[in-house]
């Protein structure tokens, strides 16, 4: 086998190998959305986030507009503090409602943003005041049984 032929093939091999890593990073992974799209932060407090995970999508009207960046527990109020990164191209009004939703019975958990009518927009670091926590199946069931037993109506969910 000729030396130059070997060099040629090894060069091709290394190139497509590195190409594969780049493809994994850009097309399969989300390296681009983290680095290239400029974004700003929004914060929201929830009583219960259910199965929400880091990097879960944030959607408005079903369109992905951002990503969950950080999840923490507020040590005083014992509420979950979720920080989202929203793409700079999207603006949301001050009275936007954030809810934790599930696509399908066992599908992914995401945050849905429902825009209100306030003319003022949320800025970087702004807090979404109105939130709706995750629907926890066990709670629903016990509530349903409690309703049956007492026939006393109780509001579903935990709107604040």
């Amino acid at each position: 086998m000729n030396r130059t032929t070997i060099d040629f093939w090894v060069g091709i091999f290394v190139l497509i190998g590195i190409g594969a890593v780049v493809f994994l990073a850009l097309r399969v992974g989300n390296l681009t959305s983290l680095t290239t799209t400029p974004s700003y932060r929004l914060e929201a407090h929830f009583d219960n986030i259910g199965g929400l995970k880091l990097r879960a999508p944030v959607k408005a009207a079903g369109v992905a507009v951002g990503r969950v960046d950080r999840i923490q527990l507020d040590p005083r109020s014992y509420e979950a503090v979720v920080t989202m990164r929203i793409d700079n191209g999207y603006q949301f009004s001050k009275d936007t409602i954030a809810s934790i939703l599930t696509s399908g019975l066992l599908g992914e958990v995401y945050i849905g943003l429902a825009v209100g009518g306030d003319p003022q927009m949320l800025a970087d670091g702004g807090q979404i005041g109105k939130t709706q926590s995750a629907v926890v199946l066990e709670k629903l069931i016990s509530q349903f049984m409690f309703d049956k037993a007492s026939s006393a109506p109780a509001p579903a969910g935990a709107a604040k």
Partner: peptide, 19 residues
């Protein structure tokens, strides 16, 4: 297919761990 893939797979740590 592609959208959820990109949303669910992170360069760090999923891809780096694989490497």
């Amino acid at each position: 297919f592609w959208g959820n893939m990109r949303a669910g797979v992170g360069f760090w740590p999923d891809i780096t761990n694989g490497i």
